[in-house]
Design a protein around this nucleic acid. Structure first.
Lengths: 366, 366
DNA sequence: TTGAAAGCGATACCAC
DNA sequence: GTGGTATCGCTTTCAA
C-alpha cells in the first residue's frame, strides 16, 4: 500500500487536514484529546509528514549550505574544513537545521547555488566580486561570507590576517631568516596564483609587511621572499618542498596552510633535511594536526571552530529574522603559536640581525 | 518585485508552463527556436526554477544523507570522517547529488531520518538492529550500511575487521607483548562499552582471537587483555592513557581508532613515556594523520575513501534503478601497516616467546 | 512539437 | 479549537 498522506490520517481520525498538521507542528492549538486521537491514527497508519511537501508549503528548507570553492574530494583534504564544520555543526544541530555541502557543479559555483535546497549560505574561500556570485547577491538569499574584507548585504566573519602574518614574519626575522619562501594556494593546480586577491594575497601581504617593518625597525637586511604555490594538501606541500629543493632551499618556509606545511615537514624529513636546524617551517591556521607532528608546527592560530559557529549563528539569526547584529564584519583574533618547527637561521649570515631585536619573538598577537 | 514563477516566463514567451519546464529539463522536446525564446524570456525575467517546488513535483530530492551516530561536533573530531566524505563526494559531485550530514536530532536518529530531505542514506556506525532504525527499514528508503555484518534489504560495505585485528594482535604477540590494553569506543561518554556488539566488539574479538591463535601456535603464554573505552578524539586518547598510567601501564595499547591512538601517543610523550621503547601503540583505520606523528603509528589500514566511494555508488545505483549488484555485502581488505610506534616489549619477560615465531610480523593481510 | 490540466502533499489564512 | 480552501511552484501524463 502506498504511503499514507495527511488526508488519510484526517479521515481516520475524523478531523480535518489542518488538525493533523497542528498535531504535528503546533500541538498547543489542539486539545489533548483530539491531539492524542490524531497521533494515534497517524501511528496506526504509519504516517509521517512528507519532508518535501512540508518544505514547499512552508517555503523553508531548514537547510543551510556551505559553499566550497572546489570538489569535495579536494576541500576535505584540508583538516581546516572538518574543524570549521564542527563549529557550524554546533549551531545546526542545536537549531534543527541540516547542513549541505555545496561544491561547484560542473565547475560552476553559480549552478551549484541555483539548485541548492537551502535557506541560506555560508561562503568559504570566495571573494565578494567573484563573477559567479552575482547570482547569489541578486537572489537575495541570506549569506555569510568567511575570510573576506567586506561584503555588502552579507554578514562577514574574518580573522586578523595581517596581524597573524605579521607575527609570523617578525618571528622568522628575529630568528635571522633572510631567505624565505612563501607557499600560497594554487586555486587551479595548473594556473599560477593571483597574488593580488584572496586569502593568499592577504596573508602574503601581511608577511611582506611584517618583514619590511622588522627590517626597518632593526635596521637589518631586507628579506628575500620567494613565492610559489601548491594545492592545499599533503602532496601539495611535498611538491612545494621538492621544487624548492631543486632551486636551493631557503632557510625558512611559510606555508599559507598547515596541511601544506605538514607535507613540507614530512618531505624534508624524508630528504634528510633537519627541521628546524637546517630549515624552519611555519604553517597557518593551527589545525589540530599541526600539534601532532614532530617537531610540532609553529603556526598562526585562528579560532576555526569559533569562526564556524559565529558564521552559522549569524546566518541562522538572519533566517529567523533575529536582527541582532546581522551585517557588518566580525574580526577574530589570530596569534602566533611557536612550537618546534622554527629555530634560528642556520647559515649564520645574519647573527647580528638576529640579536638586534632581542625578545622580539612576537609570540602573541591581540 | 517578487521572484518570477514559471507562469510568468510562459506568458512572456507566449508558451505554456510545460514548454518552459521542457526548456530547462528536457530541451530536446522543443525545437531550437522556441527553446531559445523561452530561455531568453527566462533570463530577461531573472527566472530560476524553484528548487523546492521542483523536488516536490518530481518526487526526488537529489540529495543523499550520511547518517552519523553522534553530534556533528563529535563525529568530525575523527579524521576518519573527512576521508570517508572525500570518497562519497567523488560520487556525489559526479552524479550531481548533494550530500547532507544527518546527525541525531535531540538524540534521536529516527527523528533525524524522518525529517531528512533525502532520496537515500549511507549509514555510519549503526548496527542493523538498532531500535531507531526500524523506521528506516519500513520506510523502504534505499540504504547502504557501512561496517555491519549484513543487513537485509540494504547494501553493505564493510572491511575485513577480523583479518586486520588478527594481524595487529599477532604483530604485538610476536614482539613479546603479553600485557595489552585495548581502548574501545565509548558510544556515550558515561556508559560503558557494549563489548558484544558494534565495531568495537568486532575488532576486540578479532584481537582476542589473534592473541589466542598466536599463543596456541607458538605454545607461548596467553596475553592479558585489559579493556577500556574512551570517546573518539585526541582527548579521549589522552584520558585513556591517564587511566592506564594510574593503573600501571601495559606494554602495549591497541586503540580501536587512530585518533585515539594519536592522543595516547601525545599523552605518553608528555608524560615522558617513550614510544615504542617503553610502550607500543597500535591504531586502527590508517587515517592520513597516522603517518604524521613521530613515531608514526603502526595501524590497521582500511581503504576509507574507497569505502565511501563504493557506498555512495551503490546507493546511487539503487536510486537510479541500476540493478547492477545492488544488495549483498562487499568486503574490503585490511592490512597491518607497521610503522614506528611498535617495538619489542621492554619488560623482557617473554624474549623466548618473541623469538618463537620469527618473521611472523604479519605485515600484510589479503 | 506543444498545451491543458491534474497532481505532488503539505501549510496557513480565515471564517465558524 | 476546528475545518474549508486557496496556495506553494513545478513536473508530468495525456491529447491535440
Amino acid at each position: 500500500m502506498a504511503r499514507p498522506r495527511i488526508d488519510d490520517v484526517a479521515r481516520a481520525a475524523g478531523v480535518s487536514k489542518t488538525a493533523v498538521s497542528f498535531a504535528f507542528n503546533q500541538p498547543d492549538n489542539l486539545n489533548a484529546a483530539t491531539r492524542e486521537r490524531i497521533l494515534a491514527a497517524a501511528a496506526e497508519l504509519g504516517y509521517l509528514p512528507s519532508p518535501i511537501a512540508r518544505r514547499l508549503a512552508s517555503r523553508r528548507t531548514d537547510q543551510i549550505g556551505l559553499v566550497v570553492p572546489q570538489a569535495t574530494h579536494h576541500v576535505f583534504a584540508n583538516p581546516f574544513l572538518p574543524e570549521l564544520l564542527r563549529g557550524i555543526g554546533d549551531v545546526c544541530d542545536a537549531e534543527g537545521i541540516s547542513l549541505v555541502i555545496v561544491p561547484p557543479v560542473g565547475g560552476s559555483i553559480a549552478r551549484a547555488v541555483e539548485g541548492a535546497l537551502v535557506d541560506g549560505l555560508v561562503l568559504l574561500g570566495l571573494e565578494p566580486d567573484h563573477v559567479e556570485l552575482e547570482l547569489v547577491r541578486k537572489s537575495g538569499m541570506p549569506v555569510v561570507a568567511l575570510d573576506v574584507d567586506s561584503w555588502e548585504d552579507a554578514g562577514v566573519i574574518s580573522v586578523d590576517e595581517a596581524g597573524g602574518a605579521d607575527a609570523a614574519a617578525r618571528h622568522l626575522y628575529t630568528l635571522g631568516h633572510r631567505d624565505v619562501a612563501v607557499v600560497l594556494i594554487a586555486e587551479h593546480p595548473d594556473s599560477g596564483v593571483d597574488e593580488s586577491r584572496g586569502i593568499s594575497a592577504r596573508r602574503l601581504r601581511g608577511i611582506r609587511d611584517g618583514f619590511d617593518a622588522a627590517a626597518r625597525e632593526t635596521g637589518g637586511a631586507e628579506v628575500q621572499v620567494r613565492i610559489l604555490s601548491s594545492t592545499v594538501s599533503e602532496d601539495g606541500g611535498r611538491a612545494a618542498f621538492a621544487e624548492l629543493q631543486a632551486d636551493g632551499l631557503p632557510s625558512a618556509i611559510i606555508a599559507i596552510t598547515d596541511i601544506t606545511a605538514i607535507g613540507i615537514l614530512l618531505a624534508a624529513r624524508e630528504a634528510g633535511i633537519s627541521v628546524p636546524d637546517r630549515l624552519s617551517v611555519v604553517g597557518y591556521d593551527d589545525v589540530p594536526a599541526s600539534a601532532w607532528t614532530q617537531p610540532a608546527l609553529t603556526t598562526v592560530h585562528q579560532p576555526i571552530r569559533e569562526k564556524g559557529r559565529l558564521a552559522a549563528q549569524r546566518l541562522v539569526d538572519l533566517l529567523r529574522g533575529r536582527e541582532s547584529r546581522q551585517l557588518g564584519t566580525e574580526l577574530l583574533a589570530t596569534r602566533l603559536v611557536v612550537r618546534g618547527s622554527t629555530a634560528p637561521a642556520a647559515d649564520g649570515r645574519h647573527p647580528s640581525d638576529a640579536r638586534a631585536s632581542p625578545g622580539g619573538g612576537g609570540v602573541a598577537h591581540p
